[in-house]
Amino acid sequence: MPFPLRPARVHEACGPGATGFAAVACAQAQGDLIWIRESWQAETLHPVGLSAFFDPSRLLVAQARNQIDALAVAEDALRDGSVALVVAEFSRALDLREGRRLQLAAQAGGSTGLCLIGEGMGSNAAETRWLCAPVFDPQDKAPSTRMRWEIIKNKSGTVGAWHVRWNAEAHRLDVVSPASQ
């Protein structure tokens, strides 16, 4: 599985489990994190929930007015390179120009980018695109975090799908066998 994400590139995650994917990516990154979102969105991150994955004191949240500002902030943060991972939530599809600009900024600065997008809204410039969804398995222990991560676009590798589970005690990602139906 091409995870942890390839550094200094911009990746995309979509699907209902994209937040969980971003939380695991944040946990794997070493250093400060910035999470860019548009301020009009009603859903907020819950830092107590994130603390099962990583220490929320590493996290900065940038509230942009609109997607233009969010893109500009993401480009600044990626080009600066002082944060390990830049997570950006976008509500509108990125075109090739915007995606490419982010990709070039990430290559120049050395930060990794992760765009959380709606399904089917990816840009062609992304390094990888992941479709993430939580999965139910009756054999799991009670508070299960089993997710199905499918890589649906990969510039430098093959695609595939994996079932993973976040191990909160060990702070580790376990790859597990698919749920038996």
């Binding site: 969980g20 991150l45 819950h46 929930g49």
Partner: peptide, 9 residues
């Protein structure tokens, strides 16, 4: 967090 909490509110 003594009990699991959601990521999104």
């Amino acid at each position: 967090a003594s009990l699991p909490r959601p990521l999104r509110l």
